[in-house]
Nucleic acid binder design. Structure first.
Length: 473
RNA sequence: GGUCCCGUCGUCCAGAGGCCCAGGACGCCGGCCUUUCAAGCCGGAAACGCCGGUUCGAAUCCGGUCGGGACUGCCA
């Protein structure tokens, strides 16, 4: 039998890094076994769910390269992937459970309502927060599962091994709210059954809910899926990764110039490894050797620095054309205006200048701004550290003279000319070249000098050297 | 508090009784290269939480302890 897995995000926020990693593992496992991977939108929290979040989530999954299977063979009579479309089904199941004695209707008492109000107030919410739902009267009651007390609820978790809970530790949880909508436990379990999910791989935070899902699945008389509880992700501060932590949203990484392949690779390494040695690998390589049984039990700290390193590795591996194309929007941002076709044709090939030294695409854009913009101010500290020194005027004069008589304006020819100058002046290489760098690029930190001069062109290079010379007085 | 899960370098991962006085990677430190910043290359510091037990032998098995985490909602 082929495997069928799912990721079930709630559209109550953007795609979180933790959810993305869970999606990744589900995807890897299903692809490894040539199975099915589906996306189900768990939007039973109608108050907080939005279409915008749903779009962000799907876009981010696509960007990561986690393609999912739609339609064919999925869902049987209940073909929807959105839980809000299936309320009738959940209600019908809940009522069926009452008939078999697995669940019961629980009309709430005034005392309970009071305690709900009190709790809401204690948490700074509206008094009716836990009570009032659209179109509901307060005394409808809820439907709860009744927990069989006969035996421990045990299962073998694919990553954790044997886990068991005592029935007395499982409370009579609510499956249908008083407004007739399902709770997460009901909707999720019914869907997993209806869609014939074979493996439920999700965050470890749901481990304590698993006995509830097992009981529900049994009560439904359905086949039990295998469960796999993935280790949680933490921020560098050691706390659970949340929206508060820097960039917990996957879309943010895309926008900041990370490559999808790098993020995919890095995420795969959080709780898993290809062979214990290899750090950089392709999607296919990961698919080929992934197994839920190899997933680590320990929570993992998300390390932005390692991600950045990995991104640099992927950027260096890009073809020059691809790199140029990817950097272009970042140049536009850094320069602050659109580029003309002419500018792009003349200066757009920046790969030789910055590709091997960039970790994040936006940095590359900033490093080549000098090609596109005739700045009129110099980086302050660069100026004081490099230009405000003895002999700089003479260096610039000599450089201008030498560069003026270079034949072909190539990096090699420029280098020869400047090295000849350095020898003639008898000064240090760094001492001679840094002022030229600042004069031409505006900063003491720039791409390689000879290549930069070559890319800028003779005329503009000399102009800038001349202008800096004047500013020296 | 209760229930459950987890415990190898700062961080991620390897290690499924002898191959481990513990391996790879990020980061860090030092060096080389060098026109800056990177990249690259070379080298270094850095961990089996603790106590018992099993065994000829334990990072690996068992127990305890300590520590961390998750859950404990008509959220998911």
């Amino acid at each position: 039998m082929s495997v069928r897995l799912r990721i079930a995000p709630s559209p109550t926020g953007t795609l979180h890094v933790g959810t993305a990693r869970a999606a990744l593992f589900n995807w890897l496992y299903s692809r490894h076994h040539d199975g099915t991977f589906i996306v189900r939108i768990d939007d039973t929290d109608t108050e907080r769910s939005t279409a915008a979040f749903e779009n962000d989530i799907l876009d981010s999954l696509r960007w990561l390269g986690l393609d999912w299977d739609e339609g064919v063979g999925v869902g049987g009579p209940h073909g929807s992937y959105r839980q809000s479309d299936r309320y009738d089904r959940y209600r019908e199941v809940a009522e069926g459970l009452i008939e078999t004695g697995a669940a019961y209707r629980d009309p709430r008492t005034t005392v309970e309502l009071d305690s709900l109000r009190q709790r809401a107030q204690k948490e700074g919410k509206h008094p009716g927060h836990y009570i009032r739902r659209p179109g509901v009267t307060a005394d409808d009651g809820v439907i709860r599962m009744s927990i069989p007390q006969d035996a421990p609820i045990a299962f073998v978790d694919e990553v954790r091994g044997s886990v068991s809970f005592q029935p007395q530790d499982v409370d009579d949880f609510v499956i249908l709210r008083s407004d007739g909508t399902p709770t997460y436990h009901l909707a999720s379990t019914v869907d997993d059954v209806d869609y014939a999910i074979t493996h439920v791989a999700r965050g470890e935070d749901l481990l304590p809910s698993t006995p509830k899902h097992i009981l529900l699945t049994r009560a439904l008389g359905a086949d039990m899926p295998k469960y796999a509880h993935l280790p949680l992700l933490f921020g560098t501060d050691g706390k659970k990764l949340s929206k508060r932590f820097g960039a917990a949203s996957l879309a943010k990484y895309r926008d900041e110039g990370y490559l999808a392949e790098a993020v995919f690779n890095y995420l795969a390494l959080l709780g898993w490894s290809l062979d214990g040695e290899t750090e950089i690998f392709t999607r296919d390589e990961a698919v080929a050797s992934f197994d839920l049984a190899d997933v680590s039990k320990n929570p993992a700290v998300f390390d932005p620095e390692k991600l950045a390193w990995m991104n640099g590795e992927y950027i260096r591996a890009l073809s020059n054309e691809t790199f140029n194309t990817l950097v272009r929007p970042h140049i536009v941002t850094a320069v602050g205006r659109d580029l003309t076709a002419d500018e792009w044709a003349r200066f757009g090939d920046v790969s030789a200048l910055v590709q091997e030294r960039t970790k994040l695409l936006p940095e590359a854009g900033e490093q080549v701004v000098f090609l596109f913009e005739d700045f009129d101010a110099y980086d302050k500290s660069s100026w004081s550290k490099v230009m405000a020194k003895e002999g700089v005027g003479e260096i610039l004069d000599n450089a201008a003279a030498r560069l003026g008589s270079v034949g072909d304006w190539t990096a090699d020819a420029i280098e020869s000319a400047l090295r000849a100058m350095i020898e003639a002046m008898g000064i240090g290489v760094g001492k001679a070249l840094q002022p030229i760098r600042v004069a031409v690029t505006g900063s003491s930190v720039s791409p390689p000098l000879f290549e930069s001069l070559s890319a800028l062109g003779r005329e503009r290079s000399l102009q800038r050297i001349g202008r800096a010379r004047k500013m020296l007085g």
